[in-house]
């Protein structure tokens, strides 16, 4: 409890990291719900990895172009990284979703290949960039330490966009996800809403990758919606519960990592795994008890 109080204090040195982790923990599950319900979990694995390749490429570009890399400000570097991450996420999700819609070939194979090639490309790009090792390899490992005010602002803005779009267009996004044929017969612009959802997922993933790395991004996209799904009776409960599980796990994960000097990302994901396992056991126990006393 003391640790929690300490990390929530406004004077805490790593407060930006705490706030960012919690914001990512709240935002990722909201779009992750749609990835899970649309059975696009593999997309959730591949996308953060592709996004981080965008970061690596964007950071390597100035060096390749012969620019003085050391002269770049941290904010300029982060803007570049954000643009790389966002571009790769959006292009990847639109291309992969288009291929998915066409329904040809093996989707899992395609996504698996995209994941593994993107992972290899990230490492190769960073290994040839002598400045990258300073912080970006940490990012790939999920070390949430060096979060600037700029990163925090971007993450908060992304969460605001996610909340706004989901709040305004929830029924359209749900409708085209659940029953696209019916939506089409009622003259809903199915493709438009699909693209909007994919853009939202792409934006959230790129923000998450930039702030906390691909490992945590995927963890928060997938595990909170699965945990919430065990207990939710309707969509509203699913989304609120998933977001809460993500936010609480991010906060507790940070506290545990700080207390025992562990890397934050892997701690968060391991904690999410434990929460999911506990949730599964609780749900099974409840359903057995209900059957016994029915």
């Amino acid at each position: 409890m003391d640790t929690l109080r300490q990390i929530l204090s406004p004077d805490f040195l790593l407060r930006n990291s705490v706030y960012t982790s919690v914001l990512i923990g709240l935002a990722c599950p909201l779009v992750g719900v749609f990835l899970v319900l649309r059975r696009l979990v593999f997309m959730g694995v591949a996308l953060p990895q592709i996004s981080s390749t965008g970061v690596a490429l964007a950071l390597s570009l100035p060096m390749w172009l012969g620019a003085d890399v050391t002269a770049h400000s941290s904010q300029g570097e982060h803007t570049l990284a954000f643009l790389g991450s966002l571009t790769f996420s959006l292009v990847a999700i639109l291309v992969l979703a288009f291929l998915e819609r066409r329904g040809r070939g093996m989707a899992e194979g395609r996504l698996g290949t995209a994941y593994v090639v993107a992972a290899a490309a990230s490492i190769l790009l960073l290994s040839k960039n002598r400045y990258a090792e300073i912080g970006w390899l940490d990012l790939l490992k999920g070390e949430v330490i060096t979060i600037s005010n700029f990163d925090l602002t971007l993450t908060a803005a992304a969460l605001a966009v996610v909340l706004l779009v989901l709040g305004l267009f929830y029924k359209e996004l749900l409708f085209v996800s659940f029953d696209r044929d019916m939506a089409a017969t009622l003259r809903k612009r199915v493709l438009f809403w699909d693209v909007l959802l994919y853009l939202l997922i792409g934006l959230t993933v790129s923000m998450a990758v930039l702030s906390v790395g691909p490992l945590i991004a995927f963890g928060f996209l997938l595990i909170p919606p699965l945990t919430a799904h065990l207990f939710a009776d309707n969509m509203r409960q699913l989304m609120v519960l998933a977001s809460l599980v993500g936010g609480i796990a991010a906060l507790l994960g940070f506290a545990i990592a700080y207390q025992w000097d562990l890397p934050v990302g892997p701690t968060d994901v391991a904690l999410l795994g434990i929460l999911f396992a506990c949730g599964w056991c609780a749900q099974k126990t409840i359903s057995i008890a209900r059957r016994l006393y029915a």
Partner: peptide
């Protein structure tokens, strides 16, 4: 054709019928 993964109540499914007018 409906994916059982969606935690929707019967009412939520039926409500989709009015979405065209909203």
């Amino acid at each position: 054709q409906f994916d059982p993964l969606y935690p929707l109540t019967g009412f939520e499914v039926a409500l989709m019928g009015v979405y065209e007018r909203v």
